[in-house]
């Protein structure tokens, strides 16, 4: 008969135990707080509210509006994010740190301020009014939703693309250059594929942020049912008329979408860390 294995001896002494216990407790408290809120939301809704959301045409319209505007926002964001992220990662030029900071500025913009800034630009400045006058109407228009979402969320795509390009070993690009490839070819065949996970993660974050945008929309495009209403403004409208349960069902839908985005990003991260 073999002797029972001795219990693993803890390391770190009493202070170590105490530290671990406190940290784990705080971790548990934080996670518990978030889960508690979600459970509270879920318990508040009933079948009737779910049926209302499922069947109401205005919810379907808002869902469609949220979906297409956020996807267009992601596409436009990527058009800017890939080159800007590459430039910030690879090139040095005068004022680079300023450009880097300004790219991040929309992340820390108070959302209402973003909406207000857009409204002032398109209604109070000559250039903004001219843009509206020549036919590119944004104020209180669905196109304005895309513009708001782009302003609020494109920075995430840029930041993620930059991190993606930062992670590409420069020597691979150098080798590719000596192997007869042009800079464009190296970008297309080496840098871009290797930064792909970062760029996709950025796109997912951008989409999640765009999908949930609310504050600037209310100011810049309003919330006209069937025209500029998206899911986040539907929540606002529903709770303002006292249909809290319906608002909560839509809110849970948004949370579910965000959760999917998080899972997607985690999946990409895990694949990247596992290597090719």
């Amino acid at each position: 008969m073999t002797a029972p294995a001795p219990a693993a001896r803890p390391v770190g002494g009493l202070t170590g135990h105490l530290m671990r216990a406190v940290f784990q407790l705080l971790c548990l408290a934080f996670v518990g707080f978030v889960v508690l809120l979600l459970v509270g939301d879920a318990l508040y809704v009933d079948g009737q509210a779910i049926r209302t959301v499922w069947t109401a045409p205005y919810v379907r319209n808002a869902l469609w509006m949220s979906t297409w505007t956020s996807l267009v926002t992601v596409a436009i964001s990527l058009v800017f994010a890939i080159p800007v992220g590459y430039v910030l990662s690879r090139h040095s030029f005068p004022g680079r740190s300023w450009v880097d900071a300004i790219v991040d500025l929309p992340i820390v913009f108070p959302p209402l301020v973003a909406g207000l800034t857009l409204l002032v630009f398109f209604t109070q400045t000559g250039l903004g009014r001219w843009i509206e006058d020549v036919g590119f109407r944004f104020v209180f228009q669905p196109k304005g939703i895309v513009l708001c979402q782009f302003l609020i969320s494109a920075s995430y795509a840029v930041r993620a693309a930059k991190v993606g390009f930062d992670g590409v070993d420069r020597r691979m690009e150098h080798v590719a250059l000596t192997l007869g490839h042009s800079e464009w070819s190296v970008f297309r065949r080496v840098s871009l594929p290797l930064a792909r996970n970062g760029i996709i993660a950025g796109a997912i974050m951008t989409w999640a942020r765009a999908f949930g945008t609310f504050g600037p929309l209310l100011i810049f495009v309003g919330s006209f049912r069937g025209r500029t209403e998206v899911l986040s403004t539907t929540i606002f409208l529903e709770q303002s008329v006292g249909r809290l349960d319906v608002a909560l069902v839509i809110a849970l839908l948004l949370i579910g979408m965000a959760l999917l985005a998080l899972v997607g990003i985690r999946f990409l991260d895990r694949n990247a860390s596992l290597g090719p």
Binding site: D169, R171, M172, H174, V175, A176, T178, V190, P193, L194, G275, P276
Partner: peptide, 11 residues
């Protein structure tokens, strides 16, 4: 050119 650690393309 063969750089240090070879810089092979992992993809």
């Amino acid at each position: 050119y063969v750089p240090q650690d070879y810089a092979l393309f992992p993809h």
